[in-house]
Computed example of a mutant assay.
Amino acid sequence: MGVTGFEFATATRIVYGAGRLAEAPEAVKALGAHRVLLVTGRDARRAAPLREGLGRLGLETRAFAVAGEPTVALVREGCALARAERCDAVVALGGGSALDAGKAIAALVPHGGEPLDFLEVVGRGQALTHPALPFVAIPTTAGTGSEVTRNAVLGVPESQVKASLRGPQLLPRLAIVDPALLEGAPPAVLASSGLDALSQLIEPWLSARANPLTDALAREGIRRSVRSLRRAVLETPDAAAREDLALASLLGGLCLANAGLGAVHGFAAPLGGMFDAPHGAVCAALLPACLEVNLRALRSRAPDHPSLARFEELAGLLTGRAGASAEDGITWVRELCAALRVPGLKHYGLTETDVPRLVLKARAASSMKANPLPLTDEELTEIVRRSC
């Protein structure tokens, strides 16, 4: 089959390896920084060695903690602090929330504008036109791949939705992926983030916008996730497992940024806005039903669709068995979610009366555009009910 045109964009520089965090201070200084906004997760103490290293090189830092998933109001606050302190670079060390907040702040400060001016779906969706402040992303979890994506997801509580700032300006100048930072992560965090990473490998693999580069990365990421995720969560993760999870997350970020996602993330964005639900766990709850409904829809409405063959290859990657059927692959995913004790959507407060509104919001989500084929409202409703 011929290859249609595609684009591949990512962070200017990616540094991977255990212990590579030590290189961050020199790398930040090399970007021309003098005053750094240091964005962290809830516990800013994890960033203390980095802050000390920046200080030894003469760089001033101003800390900004992100206690939960970032909102428009929080990013507005971070932009105000960065401007008041005359910060000329942003470094984020933390999970996906800290990284998304840092990306958004770095992109918005030069515009001097309101986040809603540039936000998709519920904002005005204006294009970001000015270069961002130099931004360095250092993930401490292995799930979102935010260190290599060109969007930042922000919550808009008044609209009960999450939406993205999007544009090439959000790509970090440097991503440092150090698997040693996963040491000591609680099993629940490894499970939620690891299943998010797996879904961000599977959805681009099946995406309507898949391309040869993302295919190669997805294959490698899926193999690593398969061999290490269950072991890392249910046993004590060793260095090899941490390396696999960190690489699977990085590869998933590269895939989603360049091939798109699908129905799993189409639902996850509005669910995260409607309920206090962790993103990775929501993706895991949705993944089996999304795969089942997509497979059936392809077979009934698009029997010649290339994604059908991809379902078969995916099954082989997941199960490790040549000749595994698409159903075998979906069963493997469902059994993994059960082993890792993934709760259904009703655990987060979803009721039957919420379903029509959720389906309406999911249909408008940007991630839904890359689903292998458009799903009907009846099919979307079935996914939600089967994921409860």
Rank of each mutant, 00 (worst) to 15 (best):
P157L: 06
V177A: 10
L195R: 01
H279M: 13
S164E: 12
L229C: 02
Q169S: 15
I202T: 08
A269M: 09
A232K: 04
A218R: 04
L195Y: 00
L190D: 10
M274D: 00
A268R: 02
I138M: 13
D238I: 08
A263I: 08
L234Q: 13
L171H: 14
G266Y: 03
G280H: 12
D276F: 04
A277C: 10
L154K: 06
I176M: 15
E147D: 12
P157A: 07
G280T: 10
A263Q: 12
A163M: 02
V161Q: 13
L181E: 06
I202C: 00
I176N: 10
R150Q: 14
A180H: 11
A180R: 13
L195S: 02
M274Q: 13
E235Q: 13
Q200I: 08
P179I: 04
R231W: 05
F275E: 02
S249A: 13
A241T: 08
L206C: 04
G272Q: 06
V226W: 01
P139I: 03
L171A: 14
E203G: 07
E235F: 09
G194V: 05
D215E: 15
G260K: 11
R231P: 00
A268F: 07
K162Y: 02
V136I: 03
P186V: 05
A137V: 07
T140R: 05
G184C: 07
V264A: 00
Q200C: 12
A263H: 12
D178F: 11
I176L: 15
L250N: 08
V136A: 14
G272E: 07
A239N: 01
R166Y: 13
I202K: 03
V226L: 02
A241S: 15
